[in-house]
Design a protein around this nucleic acid. Structure first.
Lengths: 349, 349
DNA sequence: ATCGTTCCCGGCAACGATTGCACAAAAAAA
DNA sequence: TTTTTTTGTGCAATCGTTGCCGGGAACGAT
């Protein structure tokens, strides 16, 4: 019941393996008669070439490695969804690796992927990774590599990202336009490109509106569970208290919401809240959560397309470039203008 | 810059490949001196055995296939998380396939996985799959296979599931205990084992409380987008109107919530709602959503452990069995007893 | 001196598929 | 008929690794 090999066919038809191989590939040097025989027999036995033997012989394994911090994360699972869709259509398989936000693990995973002779890698950096020497080495070896979402701008490889700066700028501007001035930013570990870009967008908007940047209003999380509560606690202790929270991830937005409501703080009356998240439930939260959404699936698709292009047209593929996809600010109740502010405004008139 | 092979080492050290191979595996028939030489040189060149060559030679590829309907689904991404964790520790890689709920695709994916010579398969059936002949064939071929979540009870293979019956029974009982009598059940496609088990739990609870089962209160969705709205519409048209909704998935629970609130129906005052979902945001929804949660990650872990055991102790592994993990009913506001009911109760006294 | 052991190591084959080259038979040209 | 060309097929190497067999050297025992 073992898989059928080309040898089995050769033996059965009293031919050599070479003839069978050529017949199957429809080579011109095989007689139509023999071809027919071979093809029919192969069909009947449901012959499938052994991809392992092919990988060993040639250099293509028709497999892509995807290395992400966490699969169980909305953004990444959507991105992988996009990657898998493209890969499947192009005849590639997807091997998944999780770094669990560990630099060690990231390096080990890259090693493993290379050892597995994947045709290319799609990678989103772990939050611990500040040194990308391992990726430089990879690139120097000529291994096709595309970074997505959490990228390393210095690396001369194709990178696919969302417009994190723009999203953060839009979110912060919106908060400022609705009268908020003490805007706290709860964010993710500082090494990450996305952290820096979002922070930059946040600062740019503040500057635009002439609000001084206050370092104390920025707090870095670590993807730990329930860490939002403590960060919120610290921020609420500030004097004067923040009147808006802008968070940089799904988990933080949710944690923040929980923490604020636990303390009886009204959203948006007391504090306005915007997340940077792909949660499908955002609209049904209490209150409906304003968010900056990213085209996660498209990012995955684009990254996979670029990688495959790189693999298949090795040398003359389009040069490394950073592709930036737009983010969208969805304004919902959690960042509505405070009623009091409006009232004050009228009184002021 | 190509990967170092055993041949390179042999050439450099003026040894035969066999000797190098044995030295690296610390064989007793190689002199300590030679071993040292080889080991050191291999270390220096950062030699890694080519897993493809190993797969071709031996029959183990150290890769597992995971076939699921959708990665971008909370339950499955958590399960895959568990699978990957176990696999990684045991030296296996995980190759992901999505069926997108298509039977065709499921068969194609199984084929592909087998062609790839994976050491085993972890599979959760597509909702279109009613015939599992392809899996029988697989099992007959001796390919290690473990099903999880959406299983096929007739198949003589190990299956890992959540206690769907128990969860549905608990949810329905809770609704009945809080005074609901017209309990609608919005569920997923009927072929699925989990659909049937949940339906059975729902019916068992109704029977227990002497409430007649009404087929018109059960509606099947198809994982399509926004389908909940129409199903809700149909159910609300019933006379008398349902006073509770019990849904069988994340998407349906959320869709249901949206649909009900859109129509100005109060939850739980007018209609009580319970989902069967792993949404981390359930508690922060408006109102906080009562749910039956499943240990998704544990299911993945257990399935992976069983599969690896099957692979490594091929013949004398524990016989096929169905492992059932407990589900948990989390009661939140969305299924609180209606205030009116309490008032009526007091008046009745 | 010869034989038997033990210890180290090399050569060959094999896993499945592809491919350049050679070679045979048949057909075409001389 | 002989030579050339064409056509169809087989052999063997290759990819990286390991299992099996066999062989040479050193040593002790007879």
């Amino acid at each position: 019941m073992d898989p059928v090999t080309i040898k089995d066919i050769a033996r059965a038809l009293n031919l050599s393996t070479s003839t069978v191989s050529r017949a199957l590939r429809d080579s011109y040097e095989i007689s139509p008669e023999t071809k027919r025989l071979v093809m029919e027999y192969a069909e009947r036995l449901n012959y499938r070439p052994n991809p392992i033997a092919l990988s060993l012989k040639g250099s293509s394994s028709k497999a892509l490695a995807v290395i992400v911090p966490q699969i169980a994360n909305n953004f990444f699972s959507q991105a992988i969804n996009g990657i898998e869709a493209i890969a499947y259509n192009r005849g590639y398989h997807v091997i998944i690796f999780q770094t669990h936000e560990s630099y060690e693990r990231e390096m080990a995973n890259v090693q493993q992927a290379v050892a597995r002779r994947v045709d290319g890698l799609l990678l989103s950096l772990s939050s611990e990774t500040s040194d990308v020497a391992h990726l430089h080495a990879l690139h120097a070896q000529g291994v096709p590599l595309v970074l997505f979402d959490r990228v390393a701008p210095d690396l001369p490889v194709t990178q696919v990202v969302a417009d994190n700066f723009g999203g953060a700028y839009a979110a912060t501007s919106h908060l400022l336009q609705t009268g908020r001035r003490r805007i706290a930013h709860l964010t993710i570990p500082p090494y990450l490109s996305i952290t820096q870009e979002r922070l930059a967008g946040y600062r740019a908007a503040l500057e635009q509106y002439g609000v001084a940047f206050d370092e104390n209003l920025v707090r870095y999380g670590t993807f730990g569970p329930d860490e939002a509560d403590e960060l919120v606690e610290q921020l609420l202790a500030q004097e004067p208290r923040p009147d808006a929270f802008f968070t940089a991830s799904d988990r933080l937005a949710l944690g923040c919401l929980t923490a604020l409501r636990k303390r009886g703080i009204r959203i948006p009356e007391d504090i306005s809240l915007i997340g940077f998240t792909n949660l499908p439930a955002a609209e049904m939260l209490n209150p409906p959560l304003s968010t900056v959404t990213q085209p996660a699936q498209e990012i995955g698709q684009l990254a996979a397309e670029r990688l495959i292009e790189l693999i298949e047209r090795k040398q003359k593929a389009s040069p490394p470039a950073t592709v930036k996809l737009p983010t969208t600010l969805l304004v919902r109740e959690s960042s509505a203008p405070p009623v009091r502010a409006e009232a004050d405004f009228r009184i002021g008139l």
